[in-house]
Design a protein around this nucleic acid. Structure first.
Length: 638
RNA sequence: GCCGGAGUAGCUCAGCUGGCAGAGCGAUUCCUUCGUAAGGAAUAGGUCGAGGGUUCAAAUCCCUCCUCCGGCUCCA
């Protein structure tokens, strides 16, 4: 039989060959280095037998997947350490994740101190460098071993359905596991336990609550340190911490959960973002609309939200009539469209609204600005003819990239196609998906396809923002919708004088302002580009003697449209500069007797660059240009 | 909603084996008037998340609730 190698070449191997055999066929060196393999993209142990036509990849300690194998072994090291210290602990499952591994256990209570103790035990196991041995047993033997462990028995019943199952054994300790694993515990170079939390058996809240221990592992101590350092940085950049420090927003107890208040500095940033979005919208032919926060539930019944989204909606009783706070803006916009009749010549109609919506998320989900009950979407809805889809999507993507490039973010692009359950005919899905694909292809965008991940009402393109620390956040989306026009019976009159159904396109450039704000705070670490900075320039008089001149400088800046303040506290100049840096100002200008006499300023930027004897007008002109061009960094001094 | 952790001055946090509520920063006042990352002193500031209980006595122990944090599930 033949297997397919990553370079596309085919290799014929005897039937019954394992991944390791295939590696030896390729070369003895590779055979010896084989840790595991991938069959048709799935990570398997090196003893796994391959089937005819399988796509085979060999995993060695040089592969990206090696880390997954190593972390899986780290999970075993954890489990062994746990059972050494807490023999009563029952093991369930312990897989690797993107960042490390976790193990769900039960019959044991663990706190932070326990984790540190288990970690020491893990270090001892790693140090001892036990061989990790693969053992094949019969199902009966396995069931007997797990006579007291209902979870493992369930796995044996449901997943490990074959007659034989594999165990991995180290130092006499063993665990049911399909592998793959590294050769010895010593190969797990450095491991750390990170969190202890709760999880349901198989993620179902009807099931038992288990104790989940999260950890991570790397081949070397240095790699682990690097990872922990990144985590530390992420914590330092936490938007809740920076939001407090910069007085951007608060979510006080009295206002209720997930209902943030924006303070003047925070509102300034949001205002700049909405000005930018509004500008883009106008340039791309959108018309602004406005809808109230509250509608009769009749509307939500018509849109389908009442049935499908009921649990997440705030429903109010008003004089025996039911009203609902809007969880989405689209029904309102569809209703506006429906207030008059349209010709095919009128399309596309492009509506937009910075619309506040309310979603009653589960309480435990609320988190800073990333998950809230009330948030604002820079929401656009387009009503288009089927033949206009491509051009409109192109235009939306162009807008999205203007946002992305202006802010210096990176994006991931993914096309999500028709799911199993969907509305709309085959033909419209096919042409719609085809048009989306064409837009992405012709634009030269690098994108992934996520088959079946589209909404039930239409395919979509999702964008993920990648921030300065390499984390990816949900970003803009463009979604086609064949359902809403149907529900609202939207029509336009075609060239043929017949009624036709428009297609609706939902799009957002930022997603929600709240979440986008969070991404920007963390991406820039609070060091906003000058155009977004709440305070763009602070004027620092050397002493009170030049306070008067400082105010004149400030006025000149303010008149030019720059957000500037004077530091008038009775502090030393060093103290004022220190505070200015702590406040993450793009620019400070320092004025003393010399400057007051010459009508100049001394400029200092957030990178600690400084330049003296700067003509005030020249500085103001530069700031205005920088502001208008929305540059990401202060550039006066280079 | 569920599991675990936490809530003390405007902010960051100490006090928590029960016995007069603390520090630093910030604020106010005074001194200092300063040239590129913290000048000095004094003063004010608290229903110790809310309610109930135990006790001679509760920030501290117990119960209920609220809110936040880390997860589970979900999503912008």
């Amino acid at each position: 039989m033949t297997v397919v190698l990553p370079d596309g070449s085919e290799l014929s191997v005897p039937s019954g060959s394992t991944v390791e055999d295939v590696a030896y066929e390729i070369g003895p060196g590779l055979g010896r280095d084989t840790v595991a393999g991938k069959i048709d993209g799935e990570l398997v142990e090196r003893h796994a037998t391959v089937h005819d036509g399988a796509r085979i990849e060999i995993v060695t300690d040089q592969s990206d997947e090696y880390l997954q194998v190593l972390r899986h072994s780290a999970a075993h090291v954890f489990a062994q350490a746990l059972q050494r210290l807490f023999p009563e602990a029952t093991l369930t499952i312990g897989p690797y994740t993107d960042e490390g591994f976790y193990y769900d256990v039960t019959d044991v209570d663990l706190d932070e101190d326990d984790l540190r103790e288990i970690e020491s035990e893990m270090d001892a196991i790693i140090e001892a460098d036990y061989d990790i041995e693969r053992v094949v047993r019969s199902r009966e033997d396995a069931l007997e071993i797990y006579a007291d462990n209902e979870f493992k028995r369930e796995i044996l019943d449901e997943e490990a359905a074959g007659e034989e199952v594999t165990f991995y054994k180290q130092d006499g300790w063993q665990d049911l596991c399909r592998g793959p694993h590294v050769e010895s515990t010593g190969e797990v170079g450095a491991a750390k336990l990170l969190e202890v939390s709760a999880a349901y058996w198989r993620g179902d809240e009807e099931n038992e609550t288990l104790t989940r221990v999260y950890g991570t592992a790397f081949a070397s101590e240095a790699d682990l340190e690097e990872y922990l350092d990144l985590r530390e940085q992420a914590k330092e950049r936490d938007h809740r911490k920076i939001g407090q420090e910069m007085n951007l927003f608060s979510i006080p107890t009295v206002t209720g959960p997930g209902l943030p208040l924006y303070h003047p500095p925070g509102k300034t940033v949001l205002r700049e973002l909405s000005d930018f979005a509004n500008e883009l919208n106008r340039e791309h032919g959108y018309e602004e609309v406005e809808t109230p926060h509250l509608f009769r539930t009749e509307l939500w019944k018509q849109s389908g939200h009442y049935d499908n989204y009921h649990d997440d909606m705030f429903i109010l009783d008003v004089n025996d009539e039911e009203y609902g706070l809007k969880p989405m803006n689209c029904p309102g916009h569809a209703t506006i469209f429906d207030q008059q009749s349209w010709s095919y010549r009128d399309l596309p109609k492009r509506y937009f609204e910075n619309g506040k919506v309310y979603r009653k998320e589960q309480r435990g989900e609320l988190s800073g600005l990333s998950r809230v009950w009330s948030f604002t979407i820079d929401d656009g809805h387009l009503f288009v003819r089927p033949d206009q889809i491509r051009a409109e999507i192109e235009s939306v993507i162009e807008m999205i990239f203007e946002v992305v490039e202006t802010l210096g973010l990176e994006v991931d692009v993914a096309l999500a196609t028709r799911p199993e359950k969907s509305v709309g005919g085959d033909e419209i899905w096919e042409t719609a998906e085809e048009q989306l694909r064409e837009v992405l292809e012709s634009g030269g965008y690098d994108y992934d396809i996520e088959p079946g991940d589209g909404a039930f009402y239409g395919p979509k393109i999702d964008f993920g923002f990648e921030d300065a620390l390499g984390r990816v956040w949900d970003g803009p989306t463009v979604q086609l919708d064949f359902n809403m026009p149907e529900r609202f019976e939207l029509t336009y009159t075609g060239e043929d004088n017949e009624e036709h159904r428009p297609v609706m396109i939902h799009r957002a450039l930022y997603g929600s302002y709240e979440r986008f704000f969070m991404v920007l705070i963390e991406h820039f670490d609070g060091n906003f580009p000058p155009w977004l900075a709440p305070e763009q320039v602070r004027v620092l008089p050397i002493s009170d003697a030049t306070l008067g001149y400082a105010h004149r400088v400030r006025n000149a800046l303010t008149e030019a449209g720059i957000r500037a303040e004077v530091e008038d506290r009775d502090w030393t100049i060093g103290r004022k500069i220190r505070q200015g840096h702590d406040d993450r100002l793009p620019y400070m200008v320092i004025v003393g007797d010399d400057e007051a006499e010459a009508g100049t300023v001394s400029v200092r930027d957030r990178f600690e660059n400084q330049q003296s004897d700067v003509d005030l007008d020249e500085f103001v002109d530069h700031l205005v240009t920088e502001y208008e061009q929305r540059r990401t960094e202060p550039t006066f001094i280079h």
